[in-house]
Simulated assay, not measured.
Amino acid sequence: MSEKILLIEDDLEMQSLIGDYLHNYDFEVKAFDKPKEALSHLKANPSHYKVVVLDLMLPQMDGFDVCKEIRAMSDAHIIISSARNELSDKILGYGVGADDYLAKPYEPRELVLKINSFLRRNTQSNKRVGDFEIDEAKMEVSLEGYHLDLTKIEFDILLLLLSNQGKVFSREVIFNAINGIGYNSKDRTVDMHISNLRAKIGDDPKNPKYIKSVWGIGYKMVG
């Protein structure tokens, strides 16, 4: 399955050059020359792209503002591709959320190398389960592209459930499996953490999409 790349470049000749080159390396490229259209598309598909290649000299919006908006809605790896190559531009780019910076002119092969390097690192530490993307090394979880601010205990419970989708875990098993969960009543402690976790993933406790209650036993992950 080819990885999807979002390309935002208003120079149509450059856009075609980069797009064709990435296609030759089996990447699926969606290109825009207008940043507002690209942002609308990304907002509707926040977890669709692992990499965004972004020019800075754009119509409608300043490229740094575009970068900031992309970072607010997506965990994608942002590579700035720009003729603006002053150190101040690079510092500002990283400051608004860019992960890498390529100063034009450059060989398209260099862009491919940077993308492949990121994807190789990402594959080693990240895994996707349903709508969730998990980086165990960093103890981070994203849901449909949005980063979740979880405590260590919440992360451990979510990882336990996600790694065993459909399996029912009793409150006692969850309590004993999670280090540092506390010493109060098992049922009350586990229920409290599940409640907090549901709130953070937007799960309606009366009709949950992800974490289902199994009456009299405990919980299971279904989404």
Rank of each mutant, 00 (worst) to 15 (best):
G63Q: 11
K43C: 09
S74V: 00
P59L: 08
K50F: 13
P46C: 08
I70F: 04
V53S: 05
L58I: 01
D62T: 08
Y49E: 05
D65K: 12
L54R: 01
K50A: 14
A72F: 14
V66L: 07
P46R: 06
I78P: 00
D65S: 11
S47N: 14
M57H: 14
A44P: 00
D55H: 08
P46G: 02
V66G: 02
M73V: 13
D62F: 14
V53Q: 04
S81Q: 06
I70C: 04
D62A: 11
P46W: 14
L56I: 08
Q60G: 02
H77C: 12
R71P: 02
L56N: 08
N45R: 12
V53D: 03
L54S: 01
K50W: 10
Q60H: 07
E69C: 04
S47D: 15
A76E: 04
S74F: 01
C67T: 12
M73I: 10
P59W: 10
R84W: 13
I70R: 03
Q60M: 07
I79S: 01
I78Y: 05
A83M: 15
Q60C: 10
S74P: 00
V66Y: 01
L56P: 01
V52Y: 05
D55Y: 09
H77N: 05
P59M: 08
F64K: 02
L56T: 07
S82R: 10
D75I: 14
M61D: 06
L56F: 09
L54N: 02
K50C: 11
D65V: 08
L58V: 02
A83C: 12
K50Q: 07
D55E: 12
E69G: 03
L56S: 10
N45E: 07
D65C: 10
V52I: 12
S82T: 14
D55R: 07
I80A: 05
D62Y: 15
V51T: 05
K68E: 12
H77M: 14
S74M: 03
S82D: 11
F64I: 07
H77A: 07
P46K: 08
S81Y: 12
A44E: 11
M73F: 12
P46T: 06
L56V: 09
V52S: 06
Q60N: 05
L58P: 00
S74Y: 06
A83L: 15
N85T: 14
L58Q: 01
I70H: 03
G63L: 13
S81V: 11
N85M: 12
P59F: 03
R84S: 14
K68R: 15
Y49C: 06
D62Q: 13
L54A: 03
S82H: 09
I79C: 03
S81T: 02
D55F: 13
K43S: 09
N45V: 08
L58R: 02
A44K: 10
I70K: 04
A72I: 11
A44V: 03
D65F: 15
V51W: 05
V53E: 02
I79Q: 01
M73T: 07
R84H: 12
M73S: 09
R71D: 10
Y49A: 04
I78N: 00
A44Q: 10
S74R: 00
